[in-house]
Nucleic acid binder design. Structure first.
Lengths: 229, 229
DNA sequence: AACAATAACTGATAAATGTCATATTTTTAA
DNA sequence: TTAAAAATATGACATTTATCAGTTATTGTT
């Protein structure tokens, strides 16, 4: 038997915590838990979503394909985050693809459960609104970063972001391992450029690597680089 | 005597339309109408907002100062849009400055009126949520554009955007005249680069200019440029 | 109308970044 | 375990974009 939303700790981190006991029961009855392997899609750009995904475990990249065939990663969503809200709320096709960058466990919640609560429970709606306001602020920050910072600064920032949001493993490597291509797609640059800068960082003792894994060696210097010294 | 929100046509374009008659009366009683001259601030980055601004007339740029001293314009807000919602909702200081790029008339609505309705009227909250979802989608698009398109493409796109959103005057110039610096800040490039490309567009017959005013001459070619031909 | 102040423009050059070609390493799967 | 595939890495070069310096045009003010 599957676990119930009412007891799910993940809920504490997202807007579902503003649901009443009854609403939560209804969500729990209608939800479906799925396992998504690294590299698999949750959904693709342009799809019509019939619900949202609540992330129990693992990480998904939200990305958009540009005209020149390159992906831009707009956000990395992890444990406790709800994916697909925007598209369900505005009843539009998704503008982003969601692909697992590590093995994931997600709960699919049909949109009916969400929409119903959105119309009846202002606390829930307000909570969702607050989350979206936060996402919007972050998106604005990304815009400013991409247009005003150098690739080097953005890569340094990405590593610090990865450390702060996903932590490090026992050996001191970033817990979330992204391919060089994914890194370049987060930062918005050519893969070769990203690789070159990673090599440079390694040479200068800012980071160390082992295969595709990256560990931060000199956080202070990385921070200074982001700030523009 | 001032005009009442209940009769304001602007309201049809924004989330205020989801308010009940009583709520709207309350908003109308507490609102203050202000005139803001071109170049003046509505508010500055980092300020704490005590309410939102409903734009009756004119245009405001929402921008963020980057570490290297350049502004990045994240959005142009015009008639019918509500500015400052995000910050009021998440009860944070603003992350953006709002400066009038043309003479404006705005209504300042104290946050109490907004917050009260947000907690009581799920329709209103949902409406605000939909608007924010839309803004978030647009922000994602901007991210992809900035990181994947060339400056030339982005400037072409900006001109088309200005035409579609603000129209043209009788003489065939874009109705919203931005300084070259503002254009470069929308696009995320150096002012000189923007000017250079504007000259090139003029030379190639894509646009014509008169002082700082810009008129679109060959929309089809601009569009093709945006698409990457 | 004349002046100062500001904005628009242009050229020369430097710096950053992208592209293509190819070598090397790591990962995957037979 | 080993071959094939995929990812990472590096060099050479082209292109794009930024920067600095200086000129011309426009705008606003007395």
């Amino acid at each position: 038997m599957e676990s119930r939303c009412e007891n799910c700790i993940i809920r504490q981190f997202n807007s579902l915590r503003a649901m009443s006991k009854e609403e939560l029961q209804q969500v729990s009855d209608s939800k479906v838990t799925k396992k998504v392997k690294k590299g698999e899609h949750l959904f693709e750009e342009g799809e019509k979503l019939n619900g949202v995904y609540c992330v129990r475990n693992g990480v998904s990249k939200l990305s958009k394909l540009s005209a020149n065939g390159k992906d831009q990663i707009v956000k990395l969503a992890t444990k406790g985050e709800v994916i697909g809200q925007r598209s369900v709320i505005s009843e539009e096709h998704t503008n982003l693809s969601a692909i697992a960058v590590s093995d994931m466990e997600v709960c699919f919640i049909p949109k009916e459960s969400i929409n119903h609560t959105l119309q009846k429970n202002p606390n829930f709606t307000l909570e969702v609104l607050r989350h979206m306001a936060h996402d919007l602020k972050e998106a604005d920050d990304v815009i400013v970063n991409i247009s005003q910072k150098t690739v080097k600064q953005r890569i340094a920032e990405a590593f610090l972001y990865l450390k702060n949001n996903f932590g490090e493993d026992e050996e001191g490597f970033l817990a979330l391992t992204l391919s060089r291509e994914d890194i370049s797609n987060v930062v918005g640059t050519a893969t070769e450029s990203a690789i070159r800068i990673i090599s440079e960082f390694k040479k200068n003792g800012l980071i160390h690597t082992s295969g595709k894994r990256i560990g931060i060696k000199n956080e202070r210097k990385l921070l200074e680089m982001v700030e523009g010294f």
